[in-house]
Every structure is written in structure tokens, then in C-alpha cells.
Design a protein around this nucleic acid. Structure first.
Length: 130
RNA sequence: AUUGCAAACUGGUCUGUCGCUCUGAGCAAUCAGGGAGGAAAGUCCGGGCAACAUAGAGCAUCCUGCUUCCUAACAGGAAGGACCCGAAUACUCGGGGACAGCAAGUGCCACAGAAAAUAAACCGCCUAAUCCUGAUAGUUAUCAGGAUUAGGUAAGGGUGAAAACGUGAGGUAAGAGCUCACGGCUUUGUCGCGUAAUCGGCAUCGCGGUAAACCUCAGGAGUUGAAAAACCAAAUAAACCGGAGCUAUAGGGCUGCUCGCCUAAUCCGGAGGGUAGGUUGAUAGAGGUGAAUGGUGACAUUCAUCCCAGAGAAAUGACAGAUAGUCCCUAAACUUGUUUCGGGAGGAAACAGAACCCGGCUUACACGUUUGCAUUUUUU
RNA sequence: CGGGGUGUAGCGUAGCCCGGUAUCGCGCCACAUUUGGGAUGUGGAGGUCGUAGGUUCGAAUCCUGCCACCCCGA
């Protein structure tokens, strides 16, 4: 189930605005994470919608921005089921999530995967606190 | 052979696992097939396409600027000409690029310098008048020098990026393209070669530079861009406030102005309400590849063959392995620096990611290959 | 995607149209003033005019190509 299809991406402008205005956030270099919980009305195979953002100011060339986005997407795709989805399905929640890359250098895949795992763990912890 | 610089070419192939996107098949699960570039980049030109009236006239504005050709078109390309630079110094070879017109008019040319452009007189040179000094004769004459005034002069002088075209002769009080001869650049006419630019001959006219100064001449450009535009669906407020207009001389019709044309009772602004979904445009084309023919060439024509991304907050990725080119080691062969056998290293790397589509230009670029130039070393 | 603009001393600016000498303020340095500092006064230093070419005798200025930054339309 290591997929990343259209239903898992957050495209609606309204939801993105809601996430940015009301969401909680933390910084875990080189990523800034913004998240917002919403109650699940009906059972959904994809309980999370994700935005990946890389600023043009950090990476002027489009191919570098694409490279970073692909690395984030790949590591999220591999790890989300184990570290995030199981927890959310137990709690009957849906989550809006945003990864914003604020680093100045491009990480290698193995390094970035570790960071993504840490981010997912921390999101779970923060939700448990509430 | 080594190293460096410049230009051109090239910008790997294959397999597995997990994924993304499009197309087709299927009720579905799923299966099959396609999936970035030479610059996709910068957005500097040109065109297609679309709307605005069928895009029409004049002015303004902007662009281009040797000739002929290629092209859908171009500020692009090809061939040629003249000019400049370098090498050679007889022939020639290589490189360069905004190369119409200062002889239409206007402007500008700092500092220095006499003067920077209808010429002008600082020194100098020459003429005349007056005065002074000296010499000779001797009491007003001659000669020499100096001063002042009036005029002539661009030969000589220093300055400067540039000094009124250069050299020689005549001419003159002294001089001057003032005149003549030769020469340089240039205008116009004419003759000859060439499609033409241009080149050569003859006659004629002129002589500082600057048009990437204003400008003149010739040619060209209507404006706005796919967020253009067409259609479907959903929704709302034909209401409210302020201004213009009252059947045309207003306003509006995506244009800087005028004319002309069309429209027709509405138009502009403010505050506010609603919706922000889909389809087409949009991927078979000035298409690619190969061959033949024509042409010096850019290119064109014909035939054959192929279908090769089409997303929409935006796909082509991650991991692992093999392999070509490349390098190293060992052995053998001979043509003595190449080939072959075996083993090893390294191996998706640089610049960079389609957003309506094409043709160019510009810029970026690892490894490797080719060519040219330079450097160092070795052998002959 | 389309359109427009700006790069000048450590900082903020003038000069560019119409070519010749780069200006002003703050800051910096030295001196004077003060017991000392501040303020004030006098003097001084500091510039590849973003970068690479071209036109010109001569370029911050004119022309062309790049680089960086900013703004606007939606």
C-alpha cells in the first residue's frame, strides 16, 4: 500500500488556507511541518492529505526544486503506512499535513528518510498530547 | 606524447523490486503500451493560431539598414562584394561585424591651443603712414634698427584624438587649391564586365570628425495574447449609491491621436452578493528518419517509411545489479606501439525539467571524440 | 505567462535624457575644544559606477549580451 495518488494530495485552495491559518507547526531541520486534525466523517482509505512545498527563493532552478520534492514524496510514500496511517485509523481521525523545505542544500535520500521518520513520529506524539 | 585554450560533434545500453502519469482493454481486480532537451533555459526576434469591424486612410511612435538568394517569416541562414585586423609580402591564406546618408539641415567636439569649423591674426612674414635712434652726405635726403597705428597673409611655430587634402612648380609685396601637374578620398553623369553590391576607364563636383547625436532617405510593423477564445454545468441582486448622456456633435466597440465605420440606450465609478467545476483550444506537425534528383550553398522537389510526452499545485522517481566507452596490472604476438587473452578499478556523470505550437538567436555544459593554435618533453 | 524598473564609497542617494571634472548626507580617521565623553568646528581617507563586449579621441552616461534584485497584471 505504498502509494501516493491524487486523493492523498491536498489541492483545494480552501483547505490549504484553513491549514495555514489554523494549523499547528514545528521546525525539524530541514523541514517545516504544518498539521491540522479533522474528525473523520466516514471511513477513508487515505486518512491524510499532504502538501509538499519548496520555495523558489531557496532553489532558483526548477530541476533542483523537482529533485527535492521527489525525494520528500518518495520517503513519505515508503513510511507513511507504518508510522502514521495505523495510528490515525485507530483514532478515527483525518489529517491535513504540509512539508515545507527550508534547507539550503539538497540532502541525500537516506538522510532525508531519517528526518521524515522523525517528523512523522513527532506529529503522532503531538496529536496524542491533545 | 603531455598540458592548456578555442570551435564542432556527442549527450550511453540493459535487467529487477516498489511507485507516478496518460492511452487502450475490462463490470471490477488487473493487464498491455507510451512517457523531457540540445539547449525543454533566457524570453531577445519572427511566424502559426485566436479575439477585436472584413483591420480601412493619414499623422505620431517603434524597428531594420552593402548586394543577391533561401525561407511561412525574421534582427536568422547561404553565397558574393567593399572595409578592417593578423600571417605572408608575386599569387594568396585565416579571422571579424549595426557596412545607407555629415555633398539636405541643425547640434556637439572637454583640457590644451592663436584658432575646433559661414574661419580666425598670439608669435612670425609683408605693405603703407607717423615718431625715435644710429651711420653717410650734410640740414633734408638715403640706408639700417626699433616703436605705434592702419591693412594684407594661413607658408613657418607650439597644442591636441583631430588643424582646413598631400607633394612639387608657377604666382605674389608676402602668401594662399589662387592656378597647374601628379596623387588620396568623395559626388554626379557616362561607357564596359557582372542579376546586383562592386570594380575599371573618361569627364565633372567637393574636401575635419561625429548619425550606437537630433535627423534625412528606403523598407516594414493595426492592437492584444492561450489567464486569447468557444461551449457545457452551477450560482446570484436586471436590485443600491454617485457621475455622464436624453435620439446624436454624447457614450461604447481591448489601438497614442484624427478621420472614417459599426452599435444603440445605455455607459463609467463605488460598495456589496454569487461562482471559482468540466470539455474543447492541445499535440499528425512549415513533423522525424532514409534514399534519389536539382543547386557552389542555405535549401527545394519526389519517393519510401515511422507516429514519437500531453500534465493541470503540474507525471518521467527511489533502491539494487550488469555492461559499452575509459583507466590500471599480467602474459603473448609481431609491423615496436598497437592488437589479443586473463584479472581489477570506475561507471545515469555536466548544464539542466515540456506548460498552446513551430523557426531562429543568445547563454550554460561533465566524461569522451575530432580539428586548429600554443606550451613542455623525448626521439630521429 | 505577460509587462515595467533598479544596480554608483560601509549605508542611503545625485549625476545618465543632451558623453569630457563622480555630488550630497550619515558613518570612518586625525586634530581642535573638554578633567574625560557627547555635541560642535577644521582637515582627510575611502569608488573595477553590477558584469563582458562594442561605438567614440574619450563611456557611470550611447548600443548589445549576460548576472542579481524589485514591482505590476491575473
Amino acid at each position: 500500500m505504498n502509494t501516493f495518488k491524487k486523493e492523498e494530495r491536498l489541492c483545494s485552495k480552501k483547505l490549504i488556507e484553513e491549514l495555514l491559518h489554523n494549523g499547528s507547526s514545528f521546525l525539524l531541520y530541514p523541514l517545516k511541518v504544518v498539521w491540522l486534525i479533522k474528525p473523520a466523517n466516514e471511513p477513508n482509505p487515505y486518512p491524510t492529505q499532504l502538501v509538499i512545498s519548496v520555495a523558489k527563493k531557496r532553489f532558483r532552478r526548477a530541476n533542483k526544486r523537482n529533485k527535492v520534492k521527489r525525494l520528500i514524496r518518495e520517503s513519505y510514500r515508503i513510511n507513511k503506512e507504518e508510522h502514521l496511517y495505523n495510528f490515525l485509523k485507530e483514532q478515527q481521525l483525518t489529517l491535513l499535513l504540509m512539508f515545507s523545505y527550508v534547507g539550503k542544500d539538497i540532502f541525500t535520500y537516506s538522510d532525508l528518510e531519517k528526518k521524515i521518520k522523525l517528523c512523522l513520529h513527532r506529529v503522532v506524539k503531538e496529536i496524542e498530547k491533545r
